[in-house]
């Protein structure tokens, strides 16, 4: 469990403010646009950026501890494997000089099939191998909390979901919580304990299932369909809210097929998309907002 109390980070005029947040489960995702404050928040949790307030991880108050005592391992987007060392030295670094555990090293190297690349320099291994090494290096250090800042974002979906599952399995086995920052909704397909949506340094909402998401800002990160922003109001569209006629509204085009059939229309220079299974009967589409769901931004 991770508890934030009056947590505030200020960096270069940008503020991340979390008055209160409780993450009860192991598997937490942090979602937000680029520049929303994900990296700043993760760095502050790790202690790499100064933060005020309290963070407690499984009854240990870590916010007053120096970085090396927080046991909050970090995997950044560019992985940052130590390029002057070979793979083995990267993995054993925390065993020799930090909080690592040699028995975890042996088990992880075997299970993640890293034995064949131990003697190679990190510049000589593939991106996929580098990602496995970065996960292994962090897990071997025996963290209480693993912080991941979009480390697999350049991988295909199969590889990315596989890596997240790998972390999830080790999290169960070694009893650490993790926070995984992403802006890709597909990363949530394996389930989550809490999804934290962040924008401009503030928590938009923290939910424990996709059905509980209310805000336009969160929904628009997860799906491009059935959302509409109109004159400062935000709507979740239903098929009933689409009104076809020949006199007014927006021109539209039907795209896709089957379950992925939708209409595309344009309002104020911006395209929107709404799933649509029926038949259109008019040149224009307009909206009956009483049949759409008015949602907060």
């Amino acid at each position: 469990m991770i508890i934030f109390e009056d947590f505030l980070v200020e960096r270069g005029g940008f503020i991340v403010d979390i008055p209160g947040l409780v993450l009860k489960g192991r598997k937490n995702f942090l979602i937000g646009r680029n520049g929303s404050g994900k990296t700043t928040l993760l760095q502050a949790i790790a202690g790499l950026t100064e933060g005020k307030g309290r963070i407690t991880v499984n009854d240990t108050e870590i916010s007053s501890l120096p970085v090396q005592n927080r046991r909050a391992a970090m995997i950044p987007q560019d992985l940052l494997l130590f390029r002057t060392m070979d793979v083995d030295d990267n993995l054993k670094l925390s065993v020799r000089h930090g909080t690592g555990d040699i028995s975890v090293y042996r088990q992880v190297v075997k299970e993640m099939e890293l034995g064949g690349i131990l003697g190679r320099k990190v510049g000589e291994i593939s991106q996929g191998e580098a990602q496995r090494v970065a996960i292994a290096r962090a897990i071997i250090s025996r963290p209480l909390l693993l912080l991941m800042d979009e480390p697999f974002s350049f991988q295909d979906e199969v590889a990315r979901l596989s890596m997240i599952s790998l972390v999830d399995d080790y999290s169960k086995e070694y009893g650490f919580d993790f926070i995984y920052a992403t802006h890709n909704g597909r990363d949530l397909d394996g389930g989550f304990s809490t999804l934290i949506s962040i924008d401009k340094g503030k928590i938009v909402e923290a939910v424990n299932s996709l059905e509980n998401i209310e805000h336009y800002r969160t929904l628009s990160l997860l799906d491009y369909r059935n959302l509409l922003s109109l004159e400062g109001r935000y709507f979740k569209l239903t098929e009933e809210s689409l009104v076809f006629n020949d006199t007014h509204g927006s021109e539209y085009e039907i795209m896709g097929d089957g379950a992925n059939r939708f209409i595309r229309f344009r309002i104020a220079g911006r395209f929107y998309f709404a799933t649509f299974k029926g038949e259109s009967n008019g040149r224009f589409v307009d909206f009956d907002v009483t049949k759409a769901k008015d949602i907060p931004y």
Partner: peptide, 24 residues
């Protein structure tokens, strides 16, 4: 930034600097 990652793995500032940063 590499040195900082070393510290998140439990290395002291001294070790992280001399084992990771200086060789780099």
């Amino acid at each position: 930034k590499y040195e900082n990652i070393g510290r998140t793995l439990g290395l002291s500032p001294f070790k992280s600097y001399f084992i990771i940063a200086i060789p780099m």
